[in-house]
Amino acid sequence: MDTDQELVILALCCHYCAYAAADMAGSMRLQYPGSVRVLRFPCTSKIEVNYLLTAFERGIDGILVAGCLEGGCHFLEGNLRARRRVERAKKLLDEIGLGAGRLEMFNLSSAEGPRFAEIATEMHERVVELGPSPLRRGREAVLAGVAGMASLAEAVIAGEKT
């Protein structure tokens, strides 16, 4: 289990624009770094500061929040609310010394697959420069435990076959 060697970046995407753009990047077979994991939200306005801080606390290396273009939000102004929240969270990250650079908000339309790949690459490169999160130690300890469970995996799969 070597996820701990690799950077992990969360992409919190709204269903209507950013998630659709991420799908489109796939249909276009655009390549971007494998560190980015997408989590879908109905709208970026559902993303609370708490979610962002919890993810950082648990050791995430970077988060990008991606919503519709400003003025083009499916829910009128949800992305503007999200931006305000991201700005607030960035201030807190600076205050606790983790650095605001690990968090960024982007806007793109559902037709901008190439832009999604660009954003993912940009965020990955930024986090590579910043290095792994200093809060990762907890994550690594748990992972070491999980690695020991491989034999359990075999048992579950074997059980399924009988």
């Binding site: 992990v8 994991r37 989590l39 939200f41 993810a55 748990v142 992972l143």
Partner: peptide
């Protein structure tokens, strides 16, 4: 549900 996904991703 949301934090469940984040926690499980980060094994926390």
């Amino acid at each position: 549900q949301i934090l469940g996904a984040i926690d499980r991703l980060l094994n926390a």
